[in-house]
């Protein structure tokens, strides 16, 4: 895996995503640059998942534009995503990764070595032949990470990957996130877990009602949040 900093920054320019009369993202502007993980936090319905999906190109903005290093059209191999509840293909863990390698156009001769490397990275070396759907929730989430990394992305989006995991499984996922970030891959992760944001964030983006209400380096954000919404969220009060 290698970083491709040339893909960054990702720039959202006045992006609106509407569903009927509701704006899920409401004229959102944001720049995500290279560096340590960016944690996107906010209450349910703030627009975190939609933000990641728009960046991935899975949802087209109703208005506004997203650019990668100033370019509106995104080469597919440059980004990958892990969903909150990833779908496991009905095949073995190794073949799930093999599928992603095929889809990414990686030559077949390199598949076995790459699968071994990725399974080792996520701690599933002994599970390659297991049916993916028979793995536990935490193991499936780690396999989904390996599958996403098969694309050799420069940016990895993670949509609340630890939302339904126990502490041990959460730690395993967070360790992988750190390892991935240490390899130079830009991680953009949505979470509503402030503890997780503290543990992983290089910088924090707070979303509320489809808008960015704060975007600052993590230490600064947790020490002295600038906006009332961020202070409310940090204090654990209900952000309505």
């Amino acid at each position: 895996m290698r970083a491709q900093p040339a893909d960054l920054p990702i720039q959202f320019e006045s992006v609106t995503v509407s569903a009927g009369a509701v704006n899920i993202l409401d004229g959102l502007s944001l720049v995500i640059g290279a560096g340590a993980p960016t944690m996107v936090i906010g209450p349910n319905g703030a627009g975190k998942t939609t933000l990641l999906r728009v960046a991935m190109g899975l949802i087209a903005p109703s208005r506004g534009v997203v650019t990668w290093d100033g370019v509106a059209a995104v080469p597919p191999a440059r980004r990958a995503i892990v969903f909150q509840r990833p779908a496991m293909l009905r095949r073995s863990a190794a073949d799930n990764i093999r599928y992603a390698l095929n889809a990414a156009g990686i030559p077949r001769g390199r598949h076995d070595a790459r699968i071994g490397e990725l399974l080792a990275l996520v701690g599933l070396d002994a599970f390659g032949t297991r049916p993916a759907r028979r793995l536990s929730g935490g193991e499936q989430q780690r396999l989904a990470l390996a599958r996403a990394l098969a694309r050799d992305p420069s940016v990895l989006f993670l949509d609340e990957p630890t939302a339904s995991l126990d502490p041990a499984a959460t730690k395993a996922v967070e360790d992988i996130v750190r390892a991935v970030a240490a390899r130079g891959i830009k991680v953009v992760m949505a979470t509503h877990d402030l503890g997780e944001a503290r543990r992983l964030a290089g910088d924090v983006v707070v979303l509320h009602r489809g808008r960015v209400v704060e975007n600052s380096p993590a230490d600064e954000f947790f020490r002295s949040p600038r906006t009332a919404e961020a202070r409310t969220f940090l204090a654990g009060d209900l952000l309505l």
């Binding site: 899975l58 095949r91 694309r151």
Partner: peptide, 24 residues
């Protein structure tokens, strides 16, 4: 419905999608 997001995120083309869905 189950695979849509994953296959789209992996940029799987239409024929490969059909083959995947039939196989799985």
């Amino acid at each position: 419905t189950e695979y849509r997001d994953e296959l789209t995120a992996m940029d799987v083309g239409p024929f490969a999608r059909v083959a995947t869905l039939i196989w799985d």
